[in-house]
């Protein structure tokens, strides 16, 4: 994957801009020169395996961790120098949605509402409705499930119409319907209201459905930022792989000596052909095999690589033996 795949739409304005971010905790250098921009009106996925540095980066964006070197600005405001202005535009959930257990959902929302300006009762009812908690909003958080707390966390984060919404693994604990609801809410916020939504996850499948672009991080290094469309194209490739099952693999292989063919572990022949629109190549092979007296049982397309595999491939190069660094 090369530079050419980094999709940048020139008309979009960067809502979050991160430059050469470094962090060392104790003796461990956790982040190495993290650099990326997230734009208004997009859902930006922040993707990486466990321990890659996603949460650390997010904490640095919202000022929970100090910045060793580098710069974070939100809507043009430096997070360190202009904390309050920067944070005025941010809503978010960092790690788990921890709320005040002795307070009700409603009291919790008010708690955060009081720290912002211009939050009305109507707005609080509105966000409660949006995340589907209207019926349970007056219950204490200690009675909430993880999914309900996650929903309340989202409600809290969008309370003040932030321009940047940062959600750290927001689908944790949500049921499939909840995940779909959340996806719709986030897409709606980004595409209709022009919010910059940053979502972190370690699941490519989730990102695929939710995000416009993903930034992939592994071992504290930013591997690149890709649009989902480009990633999908990349996983498609420029060839088609066929699996051919016959009564005589050896004969088949010799017949296909002019092609890129090999024998796989099942004793079947694998044939790689350039991609073509009319399938003429495979028809020719078919015909040639039958004419030469080979009994052809099946010819099938080998399943494509998934985005998940692309992601694992990308990050496993960096992580030796799957050990968390």
């Amino acid at each position: 994957m090369s530079e050419t795949m980094i999709s940048t739409a020139p008309e979009k304005r960067a809502a979050v801009s991160i430059k050469d971010l470094n962090k060392t905790i104790g003796k461990r250098h956790i982040l190495h020169d993290i650099t990326f921009d997230a734009y208004e009106g997009e859902v930006f996925g922040f993707l990486g395996p466990n321990g890659a540095g996603k949460t650390t980066t997010i904490k640095m964006i919202v000022g929970l961790l100090s910045i060793d070197s580098g710069e974070v600005s939100i809507c043009g405001n430096n997070v360190v120098k202009n904390f309050e202005k920067a944070m005025n535009n941010v809503g978010g959930i960092v790690e788990n949605p921890e709320m005040y257990k002795n307070l009700t959902g409603y009291q919790n929302l008010w708690h955060y509402g009081r720290m912002r300006s211009g939050i009305t009762k109507e707005r609080i009812d509105e966000v409660a409705e949006l995340v589907g908690l209207t019926n349970r909003i007056n219950e204490k958080i200690s009675k909430y499930s993880l999914g309900m707390r996650q929903r309340l966390g989202v409600a809290q984060s969008i309370l003040h119409h932030p321009k940047v919404l940062i959600l750290d693994e927001p689908t944790n604990g949500l049921d499939p319907a909840g995940i779909k609801d959340l996806r719709d809410i986030l897409k709606n916020l980004a595409h209709k209201e022009g919010v910059c939504v940053i979502v972190s996850s370690h699941l490519m499948s989730e990102m695929e459905l939710m995000c416009d672009r993903v930034g992939v991080i592994s071992k504290g290094v930013m591997l690149g930022v890709y649009s989902i469309a480009d990633l999908l194209a990349a996983s498609e490739g420029e060839t088609e792989d066929y699996v051919i099952r016959t009564n005589d693999s050896v004969k088949t292989l010799s017949l296909l000596s002019g092609y890129n063919a090999s024998c796989n572990e099942n004793g079947d022949v694998e044939l790689i052909l350039p991609k073509e629109s009319d399938n003429a190549g495979i028809a020719d092979v078919n015909k040639m095999l039958i004419e030469n007296g080979v009994l052809l049982y099946t010819v099938s397309l080998k399943p494509k690589k998934k985005l998940e595999d692309v992601f694992i491939e990308m990050t496993s190069n960096e992580q030796e033996g799957g050990q968390i660094v």
Binding site: G63, N88, M115
Partner: peptide
Amino acid sequence: SNGTIKFLLINPVK
């Protein structure tokens, strides 16, 4: 200890 500090401190209050 409850982890609520993260939610408290990402608000626009120094």
